[in-house]
Amino acid sequence: MIQFCLRRLATLCVTLIAASAVVFVVMEVLPGDPAVVMLGTEAQPETLAALRKQLGLDRPAPERYVTWLAGFVTGDLGLSQTYRVPVSELIADRLAITGPLALAAIVLSTAIALPLGLFAAARHRRLGDAGVMAFGQLGLAVPNFWFGLLLVLVFSISLGWLPAGGFPGWQGGIGPAMRALILPAVALALPQAAILARVARSAILDAMAEDYVRTARAKGLTRRAALWRHVLRNAMIPIVTIMGLQFSFLLAGAIIIENVFYLPGLGRLVFQAISQRDLIVVKDIVVLLAGTVVFINFVVDLLYAVLDPRLRSFRT
């Protein structure tokens, strides 16, 4: 098991380094000098040179890459060119919105999808099953940002129950902040839940058809007991795979949804940074998000091993 973890961890590091290298190189070849962006084109050559030195731009690229990479460990990610504050501070601020939003969306979508999938599997070939399947098709087809707009139309503009966008900040109390996150979280979660419910349904149906379920029933377990003790654990293996894949969609979705609801999170930050050509911020956030995706895949791999003993004893 430890060996398994270490091997996965090594792959994780290699992928992360490769990803950061690509991002670094891509940003490097971009035209435009960050110092010029910060000071404007009319700046004095001496001031520019001084700023370059301060930003470390005068040193060779490999050295800057290593320094930058080390920044992810030390927390020093450089200075934003437009905000003039450390990028790590910016990110930490914005993460206070994106983090809870993503978490709420994952919890919500799982909480909806798994019971729904179970329900559909239990009602196999009946109306409830067909309903879940249709719901899944809708989840695949409805873009989350449009769903967000529809939620705003209904719950903010027509009914006036919830804010249409913006974020009051956590310092104003948990209540208003949470209210501001409800619609975005639902917009993010529901389409994902529809897809996940379909996956859960077929995973449970597949597991129910396995021979070991018949063995469990032959032992005298009721249908329900066999489902809980023998089907679900096995069905979780494909479900966790899809949840891991969905996480990267969720991150991408969060970027879009934050723009729908004017939430000052990471997604909005990266978006603003692009339009202001604040490349340090773009670079940092892209690597951070890619790193999160890779890390989640690592966690999924570990979860596999927890769920499936066949993987644990796998040796090479």
């Binding site: 990267s248 692009i274 490349l279």
Partner: peptide, 19 residues
């Protein structure tokens, strides 16, 4: 392939359009 999957489509699109 593994490597590309680390960048969600929208994220890579954002990066490309940023460039």
């Amino acid at each position: 392939g593994d490597f590309t999957f680390a960048f969600p489509a929208v994220l890579s699109a954002i990066m490309i359009t940023a460039i």
